[in-house]
Design a protein around this nucleic acid. Structure first.
Length: 180
DNA sequence: TAAGTGATCTCT
DNA sequence: GAGATCACTTAA
């Protein structure tokens, strides 16, 4: 047996940028009908707190983003553009709204396609990140070297102020061809 | 490059 | 209740 182990809540109970960076190379796991799908996380974005104008929570708590204000280690899933589900992992302490958007994996790129491939939707919103919800993250044993991590501004948030649009909160794991 | 799509938020 | 907006994808 490989050391497959679901990441504990403590993993998400840290500064958002640390969690974001550390999620690269981890394994996103989805269990449906006794089948477990595993995909290596390749692209993530941080949405860090009420002052981050790109974060849904920067205008305060609403019915939709409420889960981000709760404890870490939960999923925040919402529908965007009427057809795409976005998958986020809630980080940080209670009352500090922050999350990491999972934008892509080695096997699937694009946040909307990722959730479609894994059959994620409304049912996973607010669920616990763990085997009990059928959607969790595992340690992979792979260490992503700093040199392989590219940091860029986030995608699709042009409405946020310039200060936030420019923040390099997007992390991409640049795979070598032999890793594919 | 533009349209599709519908929940959600911010006004009336 | 109405209108604008949106952390995207796909087909041209």
């Amino acid at each position: 047996m490989t050391p497959e182990q679901a990441l504990p809540r403590d993993f998400f109970d840290r500064p958002t940028l640390e969690v974001t960076r550390d999620l690269l190379g981890k394994v996103l796991c989805r269990e449906v009908d006794n089948q477990v799908l595993r995909m290596r996380i390749r692209e993530v974005e941080a949405y860090d707190g009420p002052s981050d104008k790109a974060c849904h929570a920067h205008r305060g708590k609403t019915a939709r983003n409420e889960v981000m204000f709760g404890p870490p280690g939960h999923w925040y899933v919402y529908l965007c553009y009427g057809m795409h589900w976005m998958l986020n992992a809630v980080t940080g302490p209670v009352d500090f709204p922050a999350a990491v958007l999972l934008r892509g994996c080695v096997e699937v790129s694009g946040p909307g396609r990722l959730t479609k491939a894994l059959g994620i939707g409304r049912g996973e919103d607010r669920a616990i990140i763990g085997r009990s919800s059928g959607l969790w993250v595992e340690e992979s044993g792979v260490v992503v070297p700093e040199a392989a991590i590219e940091r860029t501004p986030r995608i699709g948030i042009g409405y946020a102020g310039k200060e936030w649009v420019d923040k390099p909160y997007r992390f991409v794991w640049n795979l070598k061809p032999e890793d594919e």
